[in-house]
Design a protein around this nucleic acid. Structure first.
Lengths: 150, 150
DNA sequence: GTACAGATTTACGTTAACGTAAACGGAAAT
DNA sequence: ATTTCCGTTTACGTTAACGTAAATCTGTAC
């Protein structure tokens, strides 16, 4: 399997499991959300009778899904990224195509980095203007455009 | 107005305008999208009879909307950010509250930066594994886990 | 036993961000 | 004059990602 990342102490042979509300609480989502992810085939928890039993691996997948969402990926894109961890390799073509996918995903991420940097810089500017405006604050006043500081 | 950014050559007193398809083409979106943004009050192009006339300011707003979208903001969040450029200040409380908003938005952006960095690092790992797997490729083979390089 | 807290399935509802189609207006080219 | 190209309005359709409600099961506390 090309080396499964995220085993989180594979040595411990961890057979720990989580309930659905454990994970919901940990990640600040509803149980509905987690069931929805299962419906979509994004996770496949075990069953103990009727109840779901989540493994550490399920837990990591959820974590990765939420990381994806934080940067604006759709759920579909989230699984695309996650599936890269466990490639159906064996095949040279597939490996090459995976590399292409990775490169393209990287482009997007780098564009996002630039966008975030830009936006942060803008926020800094605005904040600075706010603070200058506050420091020189005396009384309510209109047009501040080209007015010199008092 | 606390100093309007993005005048893009305010000195030139630019009265250039754009048609809807100009901007659609430039930004790679449909005209429907632009009209939709107007419906939502995100831009307010002039009219020449019935037709829309977009100013450089409209153009910048669209640009900022799309930047927001690229990092996963909703349209509502996009205008929240854009509106920071043109605060209804005059009021100390409002300025303080704007600063809070900025700080909170910054937190989110920084979390996104971390998420992107993490994801990029993961992609690098996966790619490296792919390439190692390709370089030692001889014939279709199963378990590569702990196998030494040939 | 039964009440109660959690878990499950089923299924309809909701919001966002457009897509898409229909029907029409005005100017320019043929 | 009529086709051809924008452009416009109106309006219904669509997908994603859950929310929410109702009915059922189930193990544990009392």
């Amino acid at each position: 399997m090309l080396g499964s990342l995220h085993d989180e102490g594979a040595a411990r042979l961890s057979n720990k499991t989580y309930t659905i509300s454990d994970l919901a609480r940990e990640f600040g989502v509803t149980t509905r959300t987690i069931r929805f992810y299962e419906e979509k085939g994004m996770i496949s928890p075990l069953r103990e009778g009727q109840k779901r039993l989540f493994t550490p691996s399920d837990r990591v997948r959820i974590k990765l899904i939420l990381r994806g969402k934080r940067i604006g990926l759709s759920l579909k894109e989230c699984i695309e990224v996650i599936d890269m961890y466990d490639p159906q390799h064996n095949n040279t073509d597939q490996l090459h195509s995976l590399i292409d996918t990775i490169d393209s995903r990287r482009q997007t991420l780098q564009q996002q980095q630039r966008d975030i940097d830009d936006m942060l810089a803008n926020l800094d500017q605005i904040k600075a203007l706010c603070e200058r405006s506050l420091s020189s604050y005396i009384a309510p006043d209109q047009g501040t455009s080209n007015r010199k500081k008092i």
